[in-house]
Each structure stands twice: as structure tokens, then as C-alpha cells.
Lab assay of single mutants.
Amino acid sequence: QIFVKTLTGKTITLEVEPSDTIENVKAKIQDKEGIPPDQQRLIFAGKQLEDGRTLSDYNIQKESTLHLVL
């Protein structure tokens, strides 16, 4: 699982696999929060994550925290 922290300070927990794409993660966030993926920007280690890449591409491991910017 990974954590996604929103600007409001809320933390969302997501069940993911390293092979999941960023697009996939955004879809999971939409399921939980109702935020359309095209409004979501995910930041990890100061980098904006691209939809077509996977979590493992960015070396995002379990218990990692991503930041969600709208």
C-alpha cells in the first residue's frame, strides 16, 4: 500500500502493486475521493509523475507517500 497526502492534509491509503501505472493510481484516487484523474497531479520526491509510467519506474515502494496537487 502507499499513502497519498492531499493539500488539505488528508491522507488516503491505496492498495497498489509496483506494476501499477500512475494512471491506474489516479483512477483509484477517483474511486475513493471522486476527483477526476485529469485534475490530479501526483508528486513524489519533488517530481511530477507521468501517467504512462509505473510506480516501480519511480522507485515508489510500499509505505511511500505521494503528494496530490489539484
Score class of each variant (00 low, 15 high):
Gln1Trp: 15
Gln1Thr: 15
Gln1Lys: 12
Ile2Tyr: 05
Phe3Asp: 03
Phe3Tyr: 13
Phe3Cys: 05
Val4Asp: 01
Val4Phe: 03
Val4Asn: 01
Lys5Gln: 13
Lys5Ala: 08
Lys5Val: 15
Lys5Cys: 10
Lys5His: 09
Thr6Arg: 06
Thr6Tyr: 13
Leu7Glu: 14
Thr8Phe: 11
Thr8Ala: 13
Thr8Arg: 09
Thr8Asn: 13
Thr8Gly: 12
Thr8Ser: 14
Thr8Asp: 15
Gly9Ala: 04
Gly9Glu: 04
Gly9Val: 02
Gly9Leu: 04
Gly9Pro: 02
Lys10Glu: 08
Lys10Pro: 05
Lys10Gln: 10
Lys10Ala: 09
Lys10Gly: 08
Thr11Ile: 15
Ile12Glu: 01
Ile12Thr: 03
Ile12Arg: 01
Thr13Asn: 06
Leu14Thr: 01
Leu14Gln: 00
Leu14Gly: 00
Leu14Pro: 00
Glu15His: 13
Val16Asn: 02
Val16Ser: 04
Glu17Trp: 13
Glu17Val: 12
Pro18Cys: 10
Pro18Gln: 09
Pro18Val: 11
Pro18Ile: 12
Ser19Lys: 08
Ser19Trp: 14
Asp20Gly: 03
Asp20Trp: 09
Asp20Phe: 06
Asp20His: 06
Ile22Thr: 04
Ile22Leu: 05
Ile22Arg: 00
Glu23Ala: 15
Asn24Trp: 09
Asn24Thr: 13
Asn24His: 11
Lys26Ala: 02
Lys26Asp: 00
Ala27Asn: 13
Lys28Pro: 00
Lys28Leu: 11
Lys28Arg: 07
Ile29Phe: 03
Ile29Gly: 00
Gln30His: 14
Gln30Ser: 12
Asp31Leu: 14
Lys32Leu: 11
Glu33Leu: 15
Glu33Ile: 14
Gly34Arg: 05
Gly34Asn: 08
Gly34Thr: 03
Pro36Gln: 06
Pro36Tyr: 06
Pro36Ala: 09
Pro37Asn: 07
Gln39Tyr: 08
Arg41Gln: 14
Arg41His: 14
Leu42Asn: 00
Leu42Trp: 01
Ile43Gly: 03
Phe44Thr: 02
Phe44Met: 04
Phe44His: 07
Ala45Leu: 12
Ala45Asp: 15
Gly46Ala: 04
Lys47Ser: 08
Gln48Arg: 08
Leu49Val: 04
Leu49Gln: 00
Leu49Tyr: 01
Glu50Ala: 07
Glu50Arg: 07
Asp51Gln: 05
Asp51Lys: 04
Arg53Gly: 07
Arg53Thr: 06
Arg53Cys: 12
Thr54Leu: 10
Thr54Ser: 08
Thr54Gln: 07
Thr54Pro: 05
Leu55His: 00
Leu55Pro: 01
Leu55Met: 06
Ser56Gly: 11
Ser56Thr: 09
Ser56Tyr: 08
Ser56Lys: 13
Asp57Asn: 06
Tyr58Met: 04
Asn59Thr: 04
Ile60Met: 03
Ile60Pro: 01
Gln61Glu: 12
Gln61Asn: 10
Gln61Met: 12
Gln61Ile: 14
Gln61Leu: 11
Lys62Gln: 10
Lys62Glu: 09
Lys62Asn: 13
Glu63Ser: 09
Glu63Met: 11
Glu63Ile: 03
Ser64Glu: 10
Thr65Asp: 03
Leu66Ala: 02
His67Lys: 07
His67Pro: 01
His67Val: 14
Leu68Gly: 01
Leu68Asn: 01
Leu68Lys: 00
Val69Thr: 08
